[in-house]
Structure formats: structure tokens, C-alpha cells
Design a protein around this nucleic acid. Sequence first.
RNA 1: GGUCUGUUCGUCUAAUGGUCAGGAUAACGGGUUUUCAUCCCGUUAACAUGGGUUCAAUUCCCGUACAGACUGCCA
Length: 489
Amino acid sequence: MEVRVRYAPSPTGLQHIGGVRTALFNYFFAKANGGKFILRVEDTDRERYSDESLQDLYDTLDWLGVKWDEGPVVGGPCGPYIQSERFAIYQEYAKKLVDMGKAYYCYCTAERLEALRQKQIDEKSPIQGYDGHCRDLTAEQRAELEAQGIKPVIRLKVPREGKTTFHDVLMGDITRENKDVSPDPILLKSDGFPTYHLANVIDDHMMGVTHIMRAQEWIPSGPLHVLLYEAFGWEVPTYCHLPMVMGSDGHKLSKRHGSTSVRDFRQKGYLPEAILNYVSLVGWSYDGEKEFFTREELEKCFSMEKINTAPGVFDYQKLDWFNAQYIRQKSDKELADLLMPYLKDAGLLDDSAYDRLLAFVPGIKERITLLSDIVPMVEFLKDKGEPEVALLIPKKMDASGTLNSLKNVYQVVKAGLEAGKNDEQLQQDLMDLAQQLGIKNAGVFNPLRTAVTGMAVSPPPFSCIHLMGNEEAYRRIERAIGILEKEVN
RNA sequence: GGUCUGUUCGUCUAAUGGUCAGGAUAACGGGUUUUCAUCCCGUUAACAUGGGUUCAAUUCCCGUACAGACUGCCA
């Protein structure tokens, strides 16, 4: 039988790490088994829905390179995979359950339910939830309430006796007493929209979903869903509950732990390869040794059996490490293309400087962890005026020695640049010079660095020179020489 | 409160009824180096706890503790 899985988020916020992990696992499982990956939009919460969230869902999956086989807009034989457009289907099936005597209309007001909830909390009642007030209403009672204009909801009649079991691939059988299953949960809201439970079960059935991979927070509603499948007389799919993704304090990953939305990570300059690779390793492993995976590899080697049952803490540091690794794998051109938007946004560079950026990239490839790290690193482009004399003079050198060194450096550098020498040759020239002058390499490189960048810590001097352009570099070196001359006299 | 689930280095994890319990990251130390990085080498660091089964338990079973999730006209 063909494997069919789905990712079915609710567009009520930006795609976050946890959700994306679920999407990825489903996607990889489908690919690894030659199955289909379905994307469904569960927009039944009209209060919290936003267009921005929906767009973010598409953008995020696209950025990660995840392509769905059957998608929301086009859908399949049972219609589009957007729940708000399947309104009539849920109504029909909810009524069907009422007709079968497996569900009923409930006219309880929000006030009554709130009072009930409060009472249960005050009394520390072991049973919480709906009390079945409307479960056995007569036709007359119902007619009367209808006459009052109260819009009813439809609730499932959960058996008060017995127990319900469902099987999870990872955790085995999970059994719950029916009395502990959510008491008569609402299936259809008074606005006519289905709740998650109803829409989810109907859609998974109609869309032929064979495996349900979702976060462990759904385990408690497993038995409820099984009850629903049984009420309809449908086959129950295979369940696989994924361990949760936690923050460093052991609570579900959320904004207070730092960024959690993929959009945030993207803006900060994380690469999709790094996010995809790292996120795949929270709650899943291949053999405990191999940890670099491309999307294509995961599409082949992902296996459900290797998913962990224990929750995992999202480690920002390890993500950073992955990102740095992937940045280094980029070609100079790829990296320049990725970096340019950050420099433009910061108002430091424009497209006309592309070639200079390209020449600068090799010097910083191993110095950045995030793409956005480039911005503080090119601070020197904005000339901050004359550097402090003390900054120009290296340790264990004096002003006149530094002046002499820098003058020689200037000659060598200028000649080298005019002759079109590459960075390696230029560096060699300077090291030869240091030897000639009888000083350490630092004695030639550091004055050059501070003269050109005005900073004690910077990318390699020649990279910086390429970025600002030779003429600007000459100007700054000459200025530094002037400052040193003043100091010596 | 009730129900369910989980527990191997700080973190992600591997393996195993008999192993010096492996890898990665982080931390720390050392080396290379023109700064910062990179790179290389090394060190510290884990089977939650009690009881059982067994010749033997980190591994199997039961309890305890701790943690988390759920307990909505949210998903």
C-alpha cells in the first residue's frame, strides 16, 4: 500500500522549529518510502487565522526545498486541502453522527461552561470537562432552545464505560479509560466550523492518509480520534508520535528561549541546509556517528524506527556550528550573493561593488557563523576618521619603528597591487619585508591593518583593501603615515 | 487535582544481558597563525533512584522521584 502522509498546520502564526520538524519528518518518511507528502491547511480557527501565516507556511517550505505532492489549493479527488473550503463536508458528517445517535446538539452557553469549569477547579474534581448536560435532551426541549435562537454545537457521545486503545509505532499500545477521554468534546462549533478533531479525522480518512506523524502533545487525543474513526466505521491509520522539541529550561520551545520562527532564523542569516540538517537531528538519528545530511540524503535514509521517544532540547549552539560549516562549503560567488542583501540593507554597499565583495569573501568565509555577521565585520568601510596613534603602533614597537615599517609596507603593497599580485603573493612579499627589516610578521601586518581599517581586529588586511578599493586604501595608509610622522617629531 | 508519556556526558545522541558505555557539540588546556577566526592535538564529563529476575543488569519487570504534555466552541 502506498504511504501517504501529511503536514497539516494551522495558519495562526509563523512556522516555528517544532512545526517544521514535523513537516520534515513527514516529508522524509514519504520520500524514503516512495509515498506521497500532502500539505493541508487547517484554518478552522477563524479568530486566529492570518493571511501572513499562510504565506509564511509556503515561503518556509519553499526555502527549505520541501515540495508537496498534493497541496492545499489543487487538492485531490475529495476537493481542495483547505479546511475552510470544505465547510459543507464537515457539517454533513457531523449531522450523520447525530443521526446515528453518536453525537448530539448542545445548547449550553459559554457562561454556563465557564461556571462549570470554575466549579470543577474549586472542588478539585478529578473529572474535568463537560458534564453532559444536553446529552439526553428531548425533541421538545431542543425545539424550545432552538426557538430561543441559541445556536447549538455538536458534541460527540463518548462512551462512559470501557476503554480505548490505539497503537503507536514508537510507543506501542496506549490505552485510556473512556471516562478519562475528553468528555463529550465539541465536533462542530456554533459558527458551523469543525473543531480540529472532527476535521482532522474526516480529512485524513478522505485523503487516504496512512501514517499520522505528529508531536507527542497529541497523544492524549489519540483515543478520541480512534473513537471518531470507529463511530464512522473507518479504518484507523498508523500513528507515530514525535518527541517534543524543548527549550533549554525543559519547557516546550517558545519565543522566550530565543528565535523559534524559521523566518527569524532566515533573517539572521541561517542557511536552509543548516536548519534542515540540524532540525532533523532533534529526535532522530541515523547511526549516532554520521551527522551531516543533505536534503537528498535524508529523502533516502530517513526511517521511522530511528525516531526517539524522549523529548529533545533545541541547542542553538549546535545549530550555529552547523551553519558555520555550511557557510564554508559555499563557493565565493554563492556566498557573495547571499551576503550582498545584508550589506545593502545596512547601507554599506550596492550592486556596483559586487566584484569587490567577491574579492573580500575568501577572507571572511571562515570567520562568520551567520550571514548577518558580515555587517559588523565591514564596519571599517565607513571611515571613522584618523585612528589613534597608540592603535597604529604594535606591541614591542615604537613610533619611529612603526613609521619605518609602514612606509616600506606601503611601497611593497602598492607595487604588488599595481602588478596584480594575488593575496598569497602579497602576503609573502610582506613576510619577506619583515625579515629584511628584522621584525616579526606582526610588525608589518598590524600597522597595515590598523592604517587601513582603523581596527585592531579585522579580516585579513588584503581582503579589506579589496573591499574598499585600492585608492581608498592608499589614502588611509598615507594618512596613517602622516599621523606617525607627527608623533615621531 | 486527574490521565498519559519520558529519563545515557551541560546539550543532541549511539550501542549493549558480560564494552575502558562510542560519536558530535559545548566547556577547558595546548599547538599552528599578522589580529580575530579557522585548523590540529588533548582533557573533563553520562546509564535518575529503590527493589526484583539473572551467574551477570545501564540494558528485562515493578515501584519511587523528577520532568513534560493534555485536561478549550485553540490546534
